[in-house]
Design a protein around this nucleic acid. Sequence first.
DNA 1: AAATGTGCGTTCACGGGGTGAACGAAGGCC
DNA 2: GGCCTTCGTTCACCCCGTGAACGCACATTT
Lengths: 116, 116
Amino acid sequence: MIEEDLHLEVLRLLEREPDMSQRQLARALGLSVGKTHYALKAVLDRGWVKAQNFRRSDNRSAYLYQLTPSGLQEKARLAYGLLQRKRAEHEALMTEIEQLRVEVQNAKPADEPPTP
Amino acid sequence: MIEEDLHLEVLRLLEREPDMSQRQLARALGLSVGKTHYALKAVLDRGWVKAQNFRRSDNRSAYLYQLTPSGLQEKARLAYGLLQRKRAEHEALMTEIEQLRVEVQNAKPADEPPTP
DNA sequence: AAATGTGCGTTCACGGGGTGAACGAAGGCC
DNA sequence: GGCCTTCGTTCACCCCGTGAACGCACATTT
């Protein structure tokens, strides 16, 4: 996963649930606490998220990780960049699938069930 | 890159040019000689490729890496598996793009040039 | 024939990067 | 007070790809 995508995912998760621990965040991201910690540090250092000291007794979360205005803006920018990349990926994938279809068709002994 | 895809790519390249050195193969795969060496060893161990002692004076290649009949069959099987995976990937990508499109659209301040 | 050069297959010390156990700190509970 | 839990943080560990380096076999040069 590209670093930009990781930051975007962090921003998305924290916007929905600012009261997440780093371990919850790690589980949601499918990453280790170490990697998650440094990803969170990255968005904090960039000023996209502000950590407010805050401890609730019910879930023990130590901080509120709240998106800053620039964080919201960055989230949109990252999402747009990702969209563009996904669109390019989509086009590449289409031609790749077509080439694969031809390759598979040619390799077939011509008496098998047709590819759906 | 999944190991299966690597094996398929090796089979494709060797079918087209059996007189490739491991370094040529590595360059074509975009990998190191080490990784390439072990990928080649894998297809040799599986019996998909047979190495024939063969040295030509013009290009110094030491072996001919020829696909066996089972290698040809495996190449078709791997290609078909890859096609199926690519199709699934395509569907996932479509929904992801649609979700991203909505997300980007919603984040827009409503007075910007439209997304093409 | 000997020396040198080139390309071969093979190996392995190195480094980048993710992991998760472990740490001290801080609050809740008895 | 003592104990437990969860917090953020760190860092030794491991996985895995890399590419320099090795020994070898032939070609070329001296």
